[in-house]
Amino acid sequence: MNETAAPSNEETNKNGSSDLEKNTTFETLLEVHNISLSFGGVHALDEVSFDIRKGEIRAIIGPNGAGKSSMLNVINGFYHPQKGSITYKGNERKKMSPQVAASQGIARTFQNIALFRGMTTLDNIMTGRNLKMKKGIFWQMLHWGPARNEEIHHREIAEHVIDFLEIEPIRKTPVGRLPYGLQKRVELGRALAAQPDLLLLDEPMAGMNVEEKEDMCRFIIDVNEEFGTTIALIEHDMGVVMDLSDRVVVLNYGKKIADGTPDFVRADQGVVDAYLGVSEK
């Protein structure tokens, strides 16, 4: 977790968006174009455009109230922007319900944990498999034959996620009883169980201690590298953001103020002003 981990071969690149990264294909997975979203008179997002490439870790940062979470909510169909377009996997979409987004491979976690508290870790992760389970209600009543095979098949995938996140001992514990850090991990597990193409993480490391943060970073990198999952994350810990992400987009007051590699963004005067404040002259 040191500050020099970011690739340094494109320091000279002016806009930072066409540089060489570890993925060489540059296939765009998702593109948001001129998104504007307002609630009454409050403009949460104002003409924001950026893209997310397949296989990258894309960070969205910005001061409080910058519209980061709103952006994620727009991407997974929870909010419908008044203006602008979203192109996902080459298809432009107008209005999309969260269910459709989920079925197309977008999964997410929440800033404040949104687990199903009364259910066990295993059940929570199994709900992530819900969309992939197809057997009808009559087979479920019998819980026998095809329905049981399906259940076992998905259990195997859920167990794989449990294994990956190293949460085997708590698989039968109701998540309401787990400590915060583990709950965050279970929530990541639920999103992973859906085997998403695009994973949206809303402050995955908020409120964690250093060790938990390091674990979480490791999981995020592993998910990205092992499963090839594209990740868009919101995070306030700048050290983490700069180390993890391939590219960073910076929002402030609903506007995009910078977009590029971590080093490019760090050097940007507008970003520095937004974070440190600028004296009125």
Partner: peptide, 25 residues
């Protein structure tokens, strides 16, 4: 059988947090 299968998990998900349930489909 219903409550330990997919339907039961959907029910409990809606009970515990309907917004999160919606997000996961």
């Amino acid at each position: 059988n219903l409550v330990r299968g997919r339907l039961g998990r959907s029910w409990m998900a809606v009970r515990d947090m309907d917004i999160a349930a919606e997000i996961i489909g």
